[in-house]
Amino acid sequence: MTETTETTAPAEPAPVRNAEFKAALLLILMVVLIAGAALYLMYARGAFEATQRLVLTADDSEGVAVGMDVTFAGFPIGRVRVIELSPEGKARVLVDVPKKDAHWLRTSSIFTLEKGIVGGAKLRAFTGIPTDPPLPEGAERGLLVGDAAGEIPKLLAAARDVLANVSALTAADSALGQSLQNVQGVTDKLNGPGGAMGLIAGEDKKSRELLANANSLIVRADKLVGNADAKVFGDKGVATDAQAAIVQLNGLLADARLSLKKMDAVLDEAQAVGKNARVATEDLGALRADVDTNLRKIEQLVNEINRKWPFKRDPEIKLP
């Protein structure tokens, strides 16, 4: 008897309702998210911000790239939007500066492009006088380029010239070499037997003659000094006479000093006599005042007696 096994098929999943609608809604949501992110990035990058156009001109645009920032005091105030070539063959760098940062740029502002040996180029703005008028819309300014790497060939050429000049100076046939040889010759002559005299005289014979004349002059000078010493400092020399005169002068000065002392004593006595005379004069003045007072009293007494005297004579003389 054969047994038959029955196989059951797997159950099919239930269909999703409105699958097409949900898929479309998901796609729309993704598109909206992507668009929102893009708009946010554009807003963050200043795409919707009011800007002012600035044109910078330079001989070439090496080192400048679109999107590079223009900094002022280390802060970005603008961004490079377009780089183009002018009809004159110069590079034109179009920079967009936000309106809120445009007040930092003035008519006297300077713009530089700095190219370093290491790192990228930098666009910088400098304003020396903040009170100048603001930079107008679409203003065109020259770009000052400072390339440190470009100065290296000039420095190498200058160093090469300096080395060539040093080599020419230190050559054996140069003016400096000949001067050093002359100095060496002069040093050899100074170190020689003739010394400085040999250097001055030149030849040996002339040097010996000059030395002999110098020796004779020295001998004469010694004799002259000896005679002068004898005449000045000898027993009967000028110095001895001067010393005796000084001794006599000292004696005269001592006598004059004694005379002055005696005169001082006489003056002291005269001053004492003058003081006594002054005291006596003062006493005489007081005595005279007393006498005058007594005389006035006597005169008053006499007048009073004459007035009161009954037998007073008539002093008048009557003529017949």
Score class of each variant (00 low, 15 high):
residue 318 K to E: 03
residue 282 E to D: 12
residue 161 D to F: 02
residue 224 L to M: 09
residue 210 L to C: 00
residue 148 A to M: 05
residue 17 R to M: 00
residue 165 N to W: 15
residue 278 R to C: 00
residue 36 G to N: 12
residue 47 A to K: 14
residue 148 A to Q: 11
residue 174 S to V: 03
residue 130 P to H: 11
residue 81 R to E: 08
residue 108 S to E: 14
residue 203 E to T: 15
residue 62 E to N: 07
residue 92 R to W: 02
residue 253 L to A: 07
residue 85 L to G: 04
residue 297 K to S: 04
residue 261 K to W: 05
residue 306 N to P: 04
residue 275 K to D: 05
residue 284 L to S: 04
residue 144 L to T: 13
residue 214 A to M: 08
residue 295 L to I: 08
residue 138 G to R: 09
residue 276 N to I: 07
residue 170 T to H: 06
residue 51 T to H: 15
residue 177 G to R: 01
residue 201 A to R: 15
residue 121 A to T: 10
residue 187 T to V: 09
residue 120 G to M: 03
residue 290 D to K: 14
residue 118 V to R: 15
residue 208 R to F: 15
residue 282 E to V: 05
residue 51 T to M: 03
residue 314 D to L: 08
residue 12 E to F: 05
residue 176 L to M: 03
residue 216 S to C: 03
residue 164 A to K: 15
residue 241 D to R: 14
residue 93 V to G: 06
residue 183 V to S: 07
residue 77 I to D: 02
residue 73 A to V: 02
residue 167 S to P: 00
residue 4 T to D: 12
residue 200 I to F: 07
residue 301 L to P: 02
residue 187 T to H: 08
residue 254 A to F: 05
residue 78 G to C: 06
residue 311 F to K: 13
residue 81 R to H: 03
residue 65 A to K: 14
residue 31 V to S: 10
residue 86 S to C: 01
residue 78 G to F: 11
residue 65 A to D: 10
residue 6 E to R: 06
residue 286 A to C: 00
residue 180 L to C: 00
residue 264 D to I: 05
residue 190 L to M: 07
residue 205 K to E: 08
